[in-house]
Design a protein around this nucleic acid. Structure first.
Lengths: 208, 208
DNA sequence: TATTTAAATAAACTAAGGTTTAGTTTTTGT
DNA sequence: ACAAAAACTAAACCTTAGTTTATTTAAATA
């Protein structure tokens, strides 16, 4: 499965709903993957799938809300649109609070679903871009040596190289070299840039 | 009205509901302010009120969702708990999407409301603290002179003082003085601190 | 095992930043 | 209109940062 592919995942235990929604979504030129149960969906789809998930709330064995919870636990941020035939308000509230894009009640107009899909795909694109940027930064951070990782938080706190040198029991010249090398490895040219990109990481130093 | 006061604002056109909820909330030691209509509420309450708002969705003239929208337009972030007798799912979804803390359906258990209130007050405290911090930063920023405001974005971009001097057609020495003075006025000691606090402002330079 | 590669160290030198002092202009308040 | 305060300017001096080069040590690889 191509990771860059945008797919609308449909999960509903009612085959006729699956087919109807499937052709609706295909009619606007989007790729569709249909599943009759949550298990089928989890078996077939990698956690890095991109697109969005249209989910029936009431299904045997594993409900839509259960799927939402499990996806969240897997760290997947695939946007979810719920559809329900006999849902109630507490269910809808729980779903939206947990980050669902929408919660549609049957019968709904086609345009309602299509609008929700557009919103979901937009959210997915932005989340995906954000995640990629953070992954990039993490990749750079991972190339830092032990000393460079040690020096970084002192820089971010605004300590002078001289002060950092005392903290680590090494010479100021050495701190300067570590600083220089870590800037290169993080691929930033300026201190403000270093501050900004490291804020998108959750370094131990941020917790202090 | 004391701005630091935490008050639970109750708005419901049903007087008996108002009294029942009022005494429930009072019973756990919280201050209550009751209103029979949205207009009464808006007339009596300043936009800087702190606490939370318990709002009936269905009311004559101005509905709960209208109140939510108007509060939001006023820039007020007072957390809202909706209660409804005859609400539907789309209504609940709309409310939660717009940031409501909860959407309770009558009849609800007392503990449900109290739990929602605790959540709402916690959210309010955090939003309030955040807002105060941003206000502080804005206050500091407002004391900057024209030149200091001009120099700031160049610092944040990581330009050398020499480069900033060329950009502004002044000497490097002057840039250094402006830089020194703006650091003092923003009450930060280090460049990383300056970067971090100014990120909480929406300066024009951030948009470029 | 020998060889290479990466990491840590630090001195020397160059460039930039920070601070102080001071002169000039502009604004503000009496 | 005058005095005081604030803003803008800039030079001089000192401190800190950045860069280059080099040595030592440790780890990975042929």
């Amino acid at each position: 499965m191509n990771e860059n592919d945008t797919v609308i995942y449909l999960v509903d235990d009612d085959q006729s709903v699956l087919e109807a929604l499937g052709s609706l979504v295909r009619s606007i030129g989007l790729k569709v993957a249909c599943f009759s149960s949550a298990y089928e969906f989890f078996d077939a789809v990698s956690t890095r799938a991109r697109g969005c998930l249209i989910l029936d709330v009431r299904m045997p064995e594993m409900s839509g809300l259960d799927v939402q919870k499990k996806l969240s636990e897997l760290g997947d941020e695939l946007p979810i649109i719920f559809i329900s035939g006999h849902g109630d308000i507490p269910m809808a509230v729980k779903a939206i609070k947990a980050g669902a894009v929408d919660f549609l009640t049957k019968p709904f107009r086609e345009e309602e679903l299509l609008s929700a899909i557009r919103t979901a795909l937009q959210i997915d694109i932005e989340a995906s871009e954000n995640l990629n940027e953070i992954e990039d930064i993490k990749t750079h951070y991972a190339t830092l040596s032990f000393r460079e990782k040690q020096v970084l938080p002192f820089i971010l706190k605004g300590l002078l190289n001289k002060q950092t040198a005392v903290e680590l029991g090494i010479s100021e010249a050495t701190v300067k070299v570590h600083r220089h090398n870590l800037m290169k490895k993080m691929s930033v040219n300026t201190l403000p840039d270093l501050v900004r990109i490291t804020q998108r990481l959750d370094l131990p130093s941020h917790k202090i």
